[in-house]
């Protein structure tokens, strides 16, 4: 059963500066002692937002002007580190459904796409322009056009990149591959049958 196709994502933005934002920063391991993903949103970027004594740090993520944001704008190699799906799950559950970055770590990118979290790549200069525009006007509406490879904000637009496979999956609503994989079960048995180590 395909999900709803994702052709565009529209929302307000928040700028999370820095390259190599790793998965430990997105969701520190100590919040992963759980057997469901429910409630993870609360801990998104916990140590980026809070001091050790639990007070809010000065950060865009704590700034009420950006409280309604649903699109994250960040640096290069976003999501590097662990394969933990807790990272995109916490992003999704905290109310964000897209990330614009300079590049993405591969496992994070795949995990996000499977969940329908849209990850697009824009140049350093274009992300800086978007970040400035958000800072100048937090109410600014941003639209990521998955079909057209464009990010619109106000009356400006910049190009963005999205991997062709991920783009197709989002546009067709088949970003969760489980049903398609299940359909292949006869072929799977055939492939497994030819491999000695797969035999019971």
């Amino acid at each position: 059963m395909p999900s709803t196709p994702i052709k565009q994502v529209t929302g307000k933005g928040v700028y999370v500066p820095g390259d190599d934002i790793d998965t430990d920063r997105i969701i520190p391991a100590r919040f992963m002692k759980c057997i469901t993903f429910d409630g993870l949103g609360e801990y998104l970027f916990h140590d980026v937002r809070k001091t050790e004594s639990g007070e809010d740090k000065k950060h865009n993520l704590n700034d009420p002007r950006f409280a309604e944001a649903s699109i994250i704008v960040s640096g290069n190699n976003f999501g590097c580190g662990s394969s933990r799906e807790h990272a995109p799950q916490s992003i999704l559950r905290a109310g964000y459904n897209a990330v614009i970055a300079g590049s993405f770590a591969e496992i994070f990118f795949g995990n996000s796409t499977n969940l329908g979290v849209v990850c697009v790549i824009a140049s350093d200069a274009d992300r800086a322009t978007i970040a400035q525009a958000i800072e100048a006007n937090p109410e600014l509406e941003i639209t990521i056009d998955v079909e057209d490879h464009k990010i619109w904000f106000g009356d400006q637009s910049v190009p963005c990149e999205i991997k062709p496979g991920a783009r197709d999956s989002l546009l067709s609503g088949n970003y969760d591959p489980l049903d398609e994989l299940l359909e292949g079960s006869a072929d799977v048995a055939k492939t497994a049958g030819a491999l000695p180590y797969m035999q019971a």
Binding site: S83, I107, P177
Partner: peptide
């Protein structure tokens, strides 16, 4: 391969994953 939890589900259910 290191995989995410939805893919762990995929492997449990089908012994396969979708990959480039």
């Amino acid at each position: 391969f290191g995989i995410g939890t939805s893919q762990v589900r995929d492997v449990l259910a089908t012994q396969t994953i979708a990959l480039n």
